[in-house]
C-alpha cells in the first residue's frame, strides 16, 4: 500500500493536467452551482428543502459576522458562506464510498501503480492553498477598501506582520489539507488493516474492515464539518481585524 501525498494526474486538457482531486472538486463546484441556480430560479417565500439549508447556513454566518464585525459585516458574508459550502461539500463528497477506491491500475516506471479516479478535493494541497490564498488576499483587499491604502499599510510597519500574513496562507492550507488527507489515510488504514495484518487479500476481509471503519467514518463526517467551519470563521476573524481598526 502506497500513500501518495500528491494528487495523481489522470489526463491532460491542453497544457493543464487534470488530477483526480481536481475532478472531485469540479464535481463539488458543479453540484453547488447547479443547486444555487435551481434554488435561485425557484426561490420561494417559504423555504423548503435545499433552499432551507442554504438559507440556514447563510443566516448562521450572517449572525456571526454581525456579532464579530457589526452591521457592516454583512458585506463579507457571501465569500465566507461560499468557503463554507465549497469546503464542506467537497469534504463530504470525498467520504462517498468509491472515492479513493475506484481507479485504474497503470504501469509507471515498470511498476504496477493503482491510480484512484477520484480523490477528496481538499486532500490536495493545490486546492487548499488556493483557498488560503483567496482568503488572505481577500482579507487584504477588504482591509484596503475599508480604511484606504495608506491606513491599511500602517498595519505593516512591523515586518513581522508580513511574515505572519504569509504564514497564514500555509496555516490555512496545511490545516485543511492535513485534516482531510489524514482522515482519508485513517479510513484507508481502518479498511485495510486486517488485510495487512493477516496478509490475506481476499474480498471477504472487506466486511470486518468496513465495520472497523464505521466509527472513523462518523468522525470524518464531523471533521469535514468542523474544518469547513474553522476555515470560514477564521477568515471572518482575520477580515474583522483589518476592517474594524480605528482610523487615527
Amino acid at each position: 500500500m502506497k500513500i501518495s501525498v500528491a494528487a495523481e494526474k489522470i489526463f491532460n486538457i491542453g497544457p493543464i493536467p487534470i488530477t483526480n482531486s481536481m475532478l472531485t472538486s469540479f464535481i463539488a463546484i458543479l453540484i453547488l452551482a447547479v443547486a444555487a441556480i435551481i434554488t435561485g430560479k425557484n426561490f420561494k417565500r417559504l423555504p423548503t428543502g435545499v433552499q432551507n439549508v442554504l438559507e440556514m447556513v447563510y443566516e448562521m454566518f450572517e449572525n456571526l459576522a454581525v456579532e464579530i464585525i457589526g452591521e457592516k459585516g454583512k458585506t463579507y458574508v457571501p465569500l465566507i458562506v461560499t468557503f463554507f459550502l465549497y469546503i464542506i461539500s467537497s469534504n463530504w463528497i470525498s467520504l462517498i464510498p468509491g472515492v479513493g477506491s475506484i481507479g485504474l491500475n497503470t504501469i509507471e516506471n515498470g511498476q504496477k501503480v493503482f491510480v484512484p479516479l477520484f480523490r477528496g478535493g481538499n486532500a490536495d494541497l493545490n486546492t487548499t492553498l488556493a483557498l488560503a490564498l483567496i482568503s488572505v488576499v481577500a482579507t487584504q483587499f477588504y482591509g484596503i477598501s475599508a480604511s484606504g491604502i495608506k491606513n491599511h499599510l500602517k498595519h505593516f510597519i512591523n515586518p513581522l506582520e508580513i511574515v505572519s500574513e504569509v504564514s497564514k496562507i500555509f496555516s490555512f492550507g496545511f490545516r485543511l489539507f492535513g485534516n482531510i488527507f489524514a482522515g482519508e489515510v485513517l479510513l484507508l488504514v481502518g479498511a485495510t488493516i486486517l488485510v495487512i495484518m493477516t496478509r490475506q487479500s481476499s474480498a471477504l476481509m472487506g466486511i470486518p474492515g468496513g465495520i472497523l471503519q464505521a466509527p472513523f467514518y462518523l468522525f470524518e463526517v464531523f471533521v469535514g464539518f468542523i474544518q469547513a467551519f474553522i476555515f470560514a470563521v477564521l477568515s471572518l476573524v482575520f477580515i474583522s481585524i483589518y476592517v474594524q481598526h480605528k482610523v487615527d
Binding site: 501525498v5 500528491a6 493536467p17 453547488l32 452551482a33 465549497y86 494541497l125 493545490n126 490564498l133
Partner: peptide
C-alpha cells in the same frame, strides 16, 4: 507535496467562478 502552479491557479479560478 504535489504543488503545481498551474493546478493552483486552476483551483483559484474555479473557486472564483463558483463564488
Amino acid at each position: 507535496l504535489g504543488i503545481n502552479p498551474i493546478l493552483l491557479i486552476a483551483q483559484i479560478i474555479s473557486f472564483l467562478i463558483l463564488l
